[in-house]
Amino acid sequence: MAAGGDHGSPDSYRSPLASRYASPEMCFVFSDRYKFRTWRQLWLWLAEAEQTLGLPITDEQIQEMKSNLENIDFKMAAEEEKRLRHDVMAHVHTFGHCCPKAAGIIHLGATSCYVGDNTDLIILRNALDLLLPKLARVISRLADFAKERASLPTLGFTHFQPAQLTTVGKRCCLWIQDLCMDLQNLKRVRDDLRFRGVKGTTGTQASFLQLFEGDDHKVEQLDKMVTEKAGFKRAFIITGQTYTRKVDIEVLSVLASLGASVHKICTDIRLLANLKEMEEPFEKQQIGSSAMPYKRNPMRSERCCSLARHLMTLVMDPLQTASVQWFERTLDDSANRRICLAEAFLTADTILNTLQNISEGLVVYPKVIERRIRQELPFMATENIIMAMVKAGGSRQDCHEKIRVLSQQAASVVKQEGGDNDLIERIQVDAYFSPIHSQLDHLLDPSSFTGRASQQVQRFLEEEVYPLLKPYESVMKVKAELCL
C-alpha cells in the first residue's frame, strides 16, 4: 500500500493539533497551500530580480507567473513527485505547466533550498508574528487579574506546605514575570531571523556568478533584492546548502521555554482548584465526569500541561538535527523538520489560546482563602504575639514557653481530632496574655502579614508589564474561544 493518505478522510490519521486544537490561522501558515504558494512567490521574486539585473526574462513571463501564483494543481504535483521522487522539481514542473512561456526560467540558477529553506524562514517569521500578540493578550488578562487582587491576602506555599502570606495578585505576578520573559525572547528570536537568500547549491553562489558572467556586484544585488522582497532586513552571508540548523534550535528553545512557563502556571491553577481557592472557567453544560456528576475538573489547565510537556520535548529534535548536518548538509534534517517545526508552533498556539481562555474567566473564592488563612495564621502570628507581650512588660522566655504549650495543644486538636485551630481562643482565655487581649485582632490582621506584596504588584505592572504590552494595544480586544 502506498504511503500517505487522504487526510480529510475519517479513515486516515490526522494530527489532533490540526484537527482538534490549533487555530485556523496557525494551521494555514503550515498548510501545503501556504507552503507551495510561497515557493511560487519566491520563484517570481527571483525572476523579477534577475530581470532587473539584466537576464533575458520578459515582462510577459513575469506576468504569467504572477497570474498563476494561486493556480496550484495539487493532484498534478503529487503525481509528479511520485514520478520524480523530488518535491521541488515536482512543483517546478507543475508551475511550468500553467506558465508555459515562463517554464524555462522558473528556478533559474537556484537549488531546492532556495524555495525550501527560504519558505521555512518566512513561515517561522509569520508563525512567530501570530504567537506574539496571543502571548501579549494572556499577559494582559493576567495583569488585569493581578491588579484587581493585588491586596487580597492568601496563604503562600513553599514545598506545598503553608508559608508566609502573600497576595493573590502577587502570586499571579510570578506567572506574568515568566511570560514577559517569554514574550521578550519570542520577539528577540523573531527579529534575529535572517533570510537564507540566493546562495546556490553549497552556499557559494557559483551558479549565479556564472549567470551574471562573473559580476560579483550583481550577485550581491540579486541576494539583497530577493531578501528585501521577502520582507527581511538581512540575509546570511555564510550558508551551506541550507541555512544553519542552529536557527531551528533557537526558535524551538524559546517555544519550549514558553511551554515550561505555561505548565507551571496551569499546575498552580490545578492545585488551587483542589484547594477550592480558584477555578478555571466551567461552562453551564460542561460535564466533569461521566460517573461523578459533582466533579469540576480543571480540564483546560490539564490540557495545557499535557501539550506543554510535548512542546518542551520537541527542542531535542533540532538539537540532534543540527549535530548531524555533515559538511554542507545531509538530508537527516528533512523529514524531522517537516514534523517538529509545525508541531512546535501548533502546540504553542494551542496552549496560548487555551491559557487566554482560562485567564479571561478565572474565578476566585475569597471566603475559602480566608478560612485557610484562619487555619494557619495563628501559628504564624506567634512571633508577633511574643513581641507584643514583651512590649507590655512580659518575659520573652516565659511567653515563648506559654505559646509553645498552647500551640501544641491547638495542633493536637487540628491533627488528632480534625478540629479547627483554636490557638487564639486559648490565648484569649489565658490570664497571662490579658495585657494584649485587646491587640489580638490587630495582630491577626492578614494584611499585616503580606509585606509589600501589593506595592510590588503595582510597581511591576507599571514599570515592566504595561510598557512591554504597549506595541500590542491594537490587538488586545480579541477574545479566545474554545470549541473543545
Score class of each variant (00 low, 15 high):
467 P>W: 15
225 M>R: 10
72 I>C: 08
287 I>S: 03
36 F>C: 15
417 E>D: 10
26 M>E: 00
42 L>P: 02
296 R>V: 12
344 A>L: 05
103 A>C: 11
155 L>T: 00
180 C>V: 09
411 A>D: 05
109 G>W: 01
322 A>R: 04
365 Y>M: 10
326 W>E: 04
365 Y>R: 13
120 D>C: 07
137 R>G: 15
253 S>F: 10
360 E>Q: 15
71 N>F: 13
333 D>A: 06
78 A>P: 08
137 R>Q: 14
388 A>V: 04
155 L>A: 00
71 N>M: 09
57 I>P: 01
108 L>Q: 01
20 R>A: 00
448 S>I: 14
368 V>K: 08
208 F>N: 05
481 E>C: 13
156 G>V: 01
447 S>E: 11
327 F>P: 02
357 N>Y: 06
87 D>Q: 02
361 G>V: 08
352 L>K: 06
398 D>K: 12
222 L>T: 03
159 H>R: 01
11 D>I: 14
370 E>L: 13
475 V>A: 14
331 L>S: 07
270 R>K: 00
256 A>V: 07
99 C>G: 04
384 N>W: 04
369 I>K: 00
325 Q>T: 08
21 Y>V: 00
38 T>W: 02
314 L>I: 09
307 L>P: 02
323 S>H: 08
102 A>V: 08
330 T>D: 05
112 S>A: 02
410 A>P: 06
42 L>C: 11
292 M>T: 04
120 D>R: 02
254 V>P: 08
270 R>W: 03
221 Q>K: 12
386 I>W: 06
380 M>F: 06
115 V>R: 01
305 C>G: 09
165 L>A: 02
29 V>M: 15
3 A>V: 12
287 I>C: 14
294 Y>N: 06
76 M>H: 13
229 K>P: 06
436 I>W: 04
72 I>Q: 09
84 L>C: 05
204 T>V: 09
168 V>C: 09
111 T>E: 00
420 D>F: 02
219 V>Q: 01
369 I>D: 07
186 L>Q: 07
9 S>Y: 15
55 L>S: 04
33 R>A: 12
446 P>T: 04
41 Q>C: 12
70 E>T: 14
130 L>D: 06
285 Q>A: 15
250 E>R: 10
371 R>W: 05
435 P>K: 09
398 D>P: 05
64 E>R: 06
144 D>G: 15
152 L>N: 09
320 Q>P: 03
77 A>I: 15
207 S>C: 07
339 I>A: 13
306 S>V: 03
67 S>D: 13
90 A>C: 14
52 T>D: 12
92 V>A: 13
257 S>C: 07
79 E>Q: 11
357 N>R: 06
373 I>V: 11
406 L>W: 07
